[in-house]
């Protein structure tokens, strides 16, 4: 078994809790990990090329993307050299810390929602088909409501069969009202009505669903721009957040999605869904580096409470888990 396999194994055995649900066990994991890694790394004299090659492969298989992987591994190599981590005692710590540092850059507060202290906040959800927009809205409604906020949903997916009903089910589950029109109607009109309703009902947060669309469909992207314009016309500083929902199983195309949706709607954050599977969604690291769009939440299942704030450290640990 190669060094990295063992390394990975340690991560895996120690990070199940972390990758399952970020909320538990992080601290415990870190303590255990430090202990266990100590005797593991003690046996290794040097951190060699082979080690970094294996690291590279882990990253590639996490969908981080080739260019970014090369950059990351180079930086890690440099750091290892700089800190003279040859006995590899601090290697694991270093890797995680450095990755987290690279991810956050200057600002560690990038993962929180930017909502106004008073008045109506509008959050627009965008993304390709089937990534989990509607489900995320359901979970988010639940979350905000349990924080004591008044929430309203806008059924802006007027295209997909059953989409409105799907959102209504989430409305029922969370006890939140849904503003809707008929299937096939103009999504901008639904959103407009929802804003009026939100204003008159003194709602705190309006969550706007939209139909899934592939980013290369020009007309559909224009439609989205229009939706955004309508929101802006009603409330100049809105939408306060435009969240791109990304499926963690997506590969390199996620970068194109991020680019195009950012261009059309000014995406402010990402919700990375389906992390409860085996995919890592590593492309979000490349997206952060290249487009500076941070992940704000992660989806960890289909249940109402399966939405968690993004924690870069826990996420990086997860990259090494099987």
């Amino acid at each position: 078994m190669g060094f990295l396999d063992k390394f990975k194994e340690k991560f895996t055995s120690q990070t199940e809790a972390v990758t399952g649900k970020f909320k538990d066990g992080l601290l415990k994991t870190r303590q255990n990990l430090t202990e266990k890694v100590n005797d593991l790394v003690a046996r290794y004299r040097k951190v060699d090329e082979e080690f970094f090659e294996e690291l590279e492969e882990i990253f590639i298989q996490a969908d981080i993307g080739f260019d970014t992987v090369i950059e990351l591994v180079d930086e890690l190599k440099m750091e290892a050299k700089r800190k003279k981590i040859q006995q590899s005692e601090l290697l694991k710590e270093m890797i995680v810390e450095k990755l987290v540092e690279i991810y956050y850059g200057e600002d560690e507060n990038i993962s929180t929602l930017n909502l106004p202290d008073t008045g109506l906040a509008v959050i627009l959800f965008v993304g390709v088909n089937g990534v989990g927009k509607t489900t995320t809205i359901g979970k988010m409604a639940y979350k905000l409501k349990s924080e004591g906020k008044r929430v309203l949903l806008a059924a802006g997916d007027t295209f997909r069969a059953g989409a409105i009903e799907q959102l209504e089910v989430w409305g029922d589950r969370t006890g939140v009202e849904v503003i809707k029109h008929q299937e096939g109607s103009d999504p901008a009109a639904v959103i407009y009505d929802a804003i009026q309703a939100a204003k008159s009902r003194k709602v705190d947060v309006l969550l706007c669903d939209t139909a899934g669309r592939l980013q290369n469909k020009v007309n559909l992207m224009k439609e989205l721009e229009k939706v955004k314009r309508v929101i802006q016309r009603e409330i100049p500083e809105a939408p306060h957040e435009v969240l791109l929902v990304l499926d963690a199983t997506t590969g390199q195309n996620a970068m194109v999605q991020a680019k195009q949706f950012k261009e059309a709607t000014g995406v402010t954050g990402i919700v990375l869904t389906k992390l409860d599977g085996t995919a890592k969604g590593g492309i979000v690291i490349a997206i952060k580096k290249e487009l500076n769009i941070p992940v704000k939440f992660v989806g960890l299942g289909e249940k109402i409470d399966d939405l968690q704030p993004f924690d870069a450290e826990a996420y990086v640990y997860g990259l090494f888990a099987e």
């Binding site: 199983t249 997506t250 599977g277 085996t278 995919a279 492309i283």
Partner: peptide, 9 residues
């Protein structure tokens, strides 16, 4: 659009 995980799935 599935990435590396396609093999596992």
């Amino acid at each position: 659009m599935t990435g590396q995980d396609a093999v596992n799935v």
